[in-house]
Amino acid sequence: MKSSITALAAHNNAIWCDAVCRAHDRPGEFHEALWLTRLGTPRFYPDAVTTTGVEAASAQLEAIADLIALDRRREWFVKDSFHCLRLESFGFKPLFDAEWIAMSGARPDVRHHEPGDRSTIVTDEAELSAWERSWVGEDAKAAAIRPPRVFMPRLLADNDIVFVSIQGEDGRAGGGILNRGADVVGLSNLFGSHMDRVWRSLIAVAGEMFPGLPLVGYEHGDDLAAAKLAGFETIGPLRIWRLPATAR
């Protein structure tokens, strides 16, 4: 059971990465063993995501070698979804390890949020811009050197993608993203000062928007601990690899 839902989680994540890249006019390619884009990605997003395990490692390594050969003057990132690739020979170094998570059975009772919490769906460009500023943790000083946008407004037209904003009585409490694909719903980009409340709210919204589908994602560190407290279980490791750019 765990191996099959891990594959669905990896495929869901590849679908999400492709949607983000397509919104930047950098479409990716779905192959039998991985997803990749040759056109560069927004910050925080990988150039390749493997979608099958060690049985396809040879094909994955070949595809990654061809990909990085396109331009060694920039850095490359690979999401090794089954933590089974040895990319050191290409010059990659591990960036961080994480765990896939899933909630596929009975869900905890999250109908009653913290008093005063309210979840809303982002529906227009102004709301999405404000959501992203909160996600980044941008303050007034940082706004003067604002980096390029990650989440483009055209994502709002996709019925399988939901940006959730969570407000508490003391202001914005946090938010996250839901994406439906591969017969599961991915939860990602969660943020907020009270992560227990954020997880509960996202689980509740997912149940309302996409009833009956398993919930998946990946986390590490304190965020993984928060996900477990919310009722998720770990279903397999992954690794993010980084290949530094060569000197120009």
Score class of each variant (00 low, 15 high):
157 A>T: 12
109 D>R: 07
9 A>C: 08
247 A>D: 11
216 V>I: 15
82 F>C: 12
184 V>N: 04
86 R>A: 15
220 H>V: 01
8 L>R: 11
202 L>P: 01
124 D>Y: 00
159 N>S: 14
45 Y>E: 13
123 T>F: 01
248 R>V: 10
65 A>Q: 09
50 T>D: 11
141 K>A: 11
119 S>T: 05
196 D>A: 13
146 R>W: 05
225 A>V: 09
242 R>T: 05
219 E>Q: 11
22 R>M: 12
24 H>D: 14
33 A>Q: 02
42 P>D: 04
197 R>G: 05
36 L>T: 01
179 N>L: 01
11 H>C: 13
40 G>H: 00
152 M>T: 03
114 E>V: 08
220 H>E: 09
31 H>E: 14
43 R>M: 12
163 F>R: 03
241 W>A: 05
150 V>S: 02
30 F>Q: 13
26 R>D: 07
38 R>G: 00
125 E>I: 07
174 G>P: 04
48 A>P: 03
198 V>H: 06
26 R>P: 05
180 R>V: 04
150 V>G: 04
10 A>K: 02
138 E>W: 03
243 L>P: 00
197 R>D: 13
29 E>Q: 13
90 F>R: 05
43 R>G: 10
154 R>V: 12
176 G>N: 00
99 E>Q: 15
35 W>C: 10
202 L>G: 02
102 A>F: 06
168 G>F: 12
213 L>T: 00
172 R>C: 08
211 P>A: 14
246 T>V: 06
237 P>D: 15
227 A>I: 09
88 E>D: 14
202 L>I: 13
174 G>Y: 10
135 W>K: 02
82 F>L: 10
